[in-house]
Amino acid sequence: MLKKAKPAFSISVGIMLVLVLLGIILPEGLESVTETIQVFISDKFGWYYLILVTLFTIICLVFFNHTIRKNQIGRS
């Protein structure tokens, strides 16, 4: 069953092509823009990454011992 491409395909291919072309045409420009945004994200959202990732870890560990295991997914 081969399905056809969805809108997500053309949109994301388009965005990636733009990025690749920018990298080839304006390497320095792209480099300095990404550097600036990266520094901004690391500085302002560092705390958010730490909390989020630890939260995911806790959720995963909780599920290891969750009562839903008695109803093992796929074997009800």
């Binding site: 092509l17 990025l19 690749v20 990298g23 480099e31």
Partner: peptide, 25 residues
């Protein structure tokens, strides 16, 4: 093709640091 092209374009702009920056974004 796009995966390899992206890796190459970013390596071209600023080496591994450019890849890391884009990835964090």
């Amino acid at each position: 093709v796009l995966l390899s092209a992206t890796a190459l374009a970013l390596l071209y702009t600023g080496g591994l640091q450019a890849l890391q920056n884009t990835m964090i974004i």
